[in-house]
Design a protein around this nucleic acid. Structure first.
Lengths: 195, 195
DNA sequence: GTTAGCATGTAAGGAGTTACATGATTTT
DNA sequence: AAAATCATGTAACTCCTTACATGCTAAC
């Protein structure tokens, strides 16, 4: 996960490790968090397989400590694509994995996007049906707190299905040749202007 | 997490490991999942510290394989309470940890419940403010997919704050002596009857 | 001049997963 | 009699966290 996220972000521009974390927190912090204790080892690992290269902004040699800019290499781009493709069950069943893929949708083919969105929708529809079943049979047998939690889950799932539906629709209306991810009007299904 | 969940569920009645997983999936599967590969080692660990005791339903000795009922012991109840109490930052900042606590609210004092709910609300309010800030500054700099993701996050957070507000209110109206978790009318903030 | 935030890293360990392996029981 | 589901378990491994450690730089 972290490798995919880091490479995906470095595609935008070279960055410090610190900045990588800050930006990923901004965009994905809602769904997925990680610590510096996993970030730096990951960057190290990526540089060991030559997916990223290091740069020292002061012009000093590598003896100088602190402040390292990481830049993605062509090999890194290839690894990124491989990781993005390798989206088996995890990318549809795991919320975090799915959201991470969504964050990098602009690097995927329209067809890949549609497939992922529809699989996720299908999975959630399935789960929603099961949740409603459980709610029916358990309504009298569990306490109010557990029930509230289950109801919350069902509501959220329903909401998510709606959201996905809107995005699938938007993909359909924009997938005929327009550049991916440049037209904001295709989205905003749930926008509701919170300001 | 798993230890807390398993002990909490076993407080209801003795069960097979298999049943433990099924029931936890029903109630918490929306937020939190686990595999049998972690369940059985956990049960083993719990029995090693005498938090649970084993029972063989066929009346056979332990030579007989398969089908083991686990029953929580007084020591297990103590461990459960300790784990439930030890809710530092994780229980308010980590969605899964918070939801797990919520599932066992009926075993906590009204005061503990109020504290947890309010801390979680405070945390989400904080994050929402930061998310809105990010949205403002990033609106022109990131692609539509990332933006949609961030907007989704903000919407969901707002929704969650509302939900918590309803529960805090419900706690206030029901915390004056009524048995915890027995009056379903205190809830249903988001119910909306999905059937 | 001290607090807050920027910036990087490591060692030990926790909490799970995946894949495998086995066999009983129920349903079709 | 085959397939699904019930039921239990282990070994190797992955991914990440926590706690620690260091030092720079900007703001107040």
């Amino acid at each position: 996960m972290l490798e995919l996220a880091v490479l995906g972000l470095l595609k935008e521009k070279p960055m410090y490790g610190y900045e990588v974390k800050k930006r990923l927190d901004e965009r994905l912090g809602h769904t997925w968090k990680f610590s510096y204790g996993s970030l730096y080892p990951t960057l190290k690992k990526l540089s060991k397989v030559e997916a990223v290269e290091l740069e020292f902004p002061d012009g000093e040699t590598l003896t100088r400590k602190k402040k390292i800019v990481y830049r993605i290499t062509p090999k890194g781009e290839a690894i990124f694509e491989a990781l993005l493709d390798e989206s088996g069950a995890s990318a549809t069943e795991d919320r975090e994995a799915f959201m991470l893929r969504l964050a990098f949708f602009r690097y995927t083919k329209p067809e890949t996007r549609r497939r992922l969105l529809e699989r996720r929708r299908g999975y959630l529809q399935d789960r929603l049906a099961k949740m409603k079943e459980s709610l029916k049979t358990l309504r009298e047998r569990v306490d109010a707190y557990s029930l509230e939690l289950m109801q919350y889950g069902a509501n959220e799932t329903e909401h998510d299905i709606h959201w996905l539906e809107g995005m699938i629709e938007a993909e359909r209306n924009g997938a005929d040749g327009s550049q991916p991810g440049t037209d904001p009007s295709r989205f905003g299904v749930l926008r509701g202007e919170t300001t």
